[in-house]
Design a protein around this nucleic acid. Structure first.
Lengths: 208, 208, 208, 208
DNA sequence: TATGAATGAGGATTCATTCAT
DNA sequence: AATGAATGAATCCTCATTCAT
């Protein structure tokens, strides 16, 4: 498990640390994660964490920035070239698939919210990021509106947050929801069902 | 602000500890919160925390159980006696108002999800709780369906989670959303706007 | 060496820590001294150091304050009831004997000067201390002047610092002086000789 | 302020390191000074410190030896060609001016004493140094004695240490003395006054 | 029921030093 | 001669928890 980076490869060392940190922060949070454990898991000398990231918070911020950069990059990869309703379906699917495939993102973002977004606010890189999700969604809504398929005046940010909310909460709070409502929401069936519910809901929200 | 409970009042001591713990867990999470700080804030000797709650996790569970009990009790207080669409509006308002008035609930539940719902799963009290929200919502959807105002076959749990998602994510992730989308979502205007968006959305989802 | 304080005796615990700290700071300085070593030497759980003194600097300050308190108390014990010249001799002897018997005081005060008197400046207790050395010396100089034995207008603080200088530097810098001037100043003979030199010098300074 | 010595200039590199080290040791002591900080301040790669001075202690010793060499050189520059009393004044002035202009010398020598003169004792260069201060002072005392101005049998080392004591302690312990005696001794007036006091005192000590 | 004192394992971080180039 | 990367042993300090009263 512990990979030894015998060769002198700064980029690789950084990579190993970031990967281990991401997993650790996702599972135990900023406060629960242990620097020792991250070092151990990354197969890198503990000292290197401080060499590259200053301190635990710096490491957390680096993870956070990477998450947002990936989020932004994911938007670039999304292809919505299709008739409005189909594109809308694709779009929702994309968001669902993204968070479903990156559950650690949810945990880490929740953690950042717990801390009032303090790290993110201090970040210099976040501001420079593009938000392709919004741009592409904006164009989609525009086209749908022009074709008379969608309601006029829809705000892409609002719609995007709506989709995120429906995806994110279901996935991120799956355990407590399951327990409280006494219904296992972690099964493939429950997920499929919820995914369809999101599709229907979003369609209902944007259509006339 | 540190209340000294010199008098021997068990119930009051428990209360003080729970209140301080709730605030602490909401602000720093289970791992970030400090037993010392909780004792200090509650004006109670640290030893008492162990006397009443065994350990930190026991205290967290107690807070969690109280939150769910209050959640359940809040459902009881909700009055949906009105025509379906009006009742629906009231219902959404109720959920919004509840979480808006209890932001610490969101933080603590997120924390419990971070830990995979481990505490909740162990709780004996949770199972016994009624879920009045669901029951009342079920009746409402039933009535709406009978009157031809709502779609048939709506699942109250699904609808409830939908509303929670739209409320909870906006409130709980307000900071990171604001930063990432470069739009201050914490203003009264932004909140009002989002609240209306939820109302419209839910209506669109349940209506034919 | 390691005394175990099995009994619960706060005062004794504090005492043990302070004693060990004093020795440690005297030998390795604030930065060189190790908290672990102090705990070990005092036979007290390391955690207690932080319990009683907050941190290493707090411990250093406590040592410093104790040193000054003892310095002040030593002044009280000094009896100068004698004819001026005899009293002067006694006084110089007292200062010499004090520092000679408390070499750690010199090391610690030097350390505090290294840090620009930062700790002392923050101390609240220092200001309240009496300076009996000065008061008694003032009276002595006054009497000597009246009897025509001493020069008029002598400033007690100046004279006191003079005596301290002659005592303190010889004792505190004994090693480097010995090496540089290639003459062993640590022998009993050298000390006796220097002590007499101080007596003569001070007498020369104050007499007409 | 960090000078980059991109060019390969061994002497310059050594110089930069020594300068930075001297300042660091003067301000934080041997234990408090950080090798990293010294490297940073000297604009030289940290590895070079080990290349030129073996380790931290070696660097400290190098600084120490330089200090003593300068001290010795300063003695050479001192010109006491004047009538005994005038020469004595000049001499005291010289010592005062020297330490006043090189306050870091005091801090570093104190540090060396804290460590029991261990580094100095191991030094090979110290033994070879001339002590022109002593030689010149010896001649001065000799002349004064011959002219009947000074007491016979004065020991130049004793007198020199006396002067150093009066200069050194006032300057080196200025902060703690000021605080303890509640009198600001760092002002120009206080310094001038003390300097005159030394002059008078030394004259009183050596004259008949 | 309540409290101040005590504990030991562990936590983040720092340090002087060395390696590989 | 010079450098960025790497190391492991410490170092200060914190934490949840328990003891003795």
């Amino acid at each position: 498990m512990t990979r030894r980076s015998t060769t002198r490869d700064p980029e690789r060392t950084r990579r190993h640390i970031l990967d281990a940190a991401r997993a650790a922060f996702a599972h135990q949070g900023l406060d629960g994660a242990r620097v020792d454990a991250i070092a151990e898991a990354s197969g890198v000398n503990k000292r290197m964490i401080y060499y590259y990231f200053d301190d635990k918070e710096g490491l957390f911020l680096a993870v956070l920035e990477e998450i947002y950069a990936e989020l932004s990059a994911a938007g670039e990869a999304m292809d919505l070239a299709a008739p409005p309703l189909d594109a809308l379906t694709r779009y929702v699917d994309f968001v669902w698939t993204y968070y479903h495939g990156h559950p650690e993102v949810i945990a880490i973002l929740n953690n950042e919210n717990l801390h009032g977004g303090a790290h993110l606010a201090r970040s210099l890189h976040i501001r420079e990021l593009e938000r392709p999700f919004i741009d592409k969604l904006a164009r989609l809504l525009q086209q749908g509106e022009e074709k008379g398929a969608f309601r006029p005046g829809l705000d892409p940010v609002t719609i995007h947050i709506t989709v995120i909310a429906l995806v994110y909460l279901f996935l991120g709070n799956n355990r407590t929801l399951s327990i409280f409502f006494d219904r296992d929401l972690s099964t493939a069936v429950a997920k499929k069902s919820w995914r369809e519910h999101i599709q229907c809901s979003v369609r209902a929200i944007v259509t006339v």
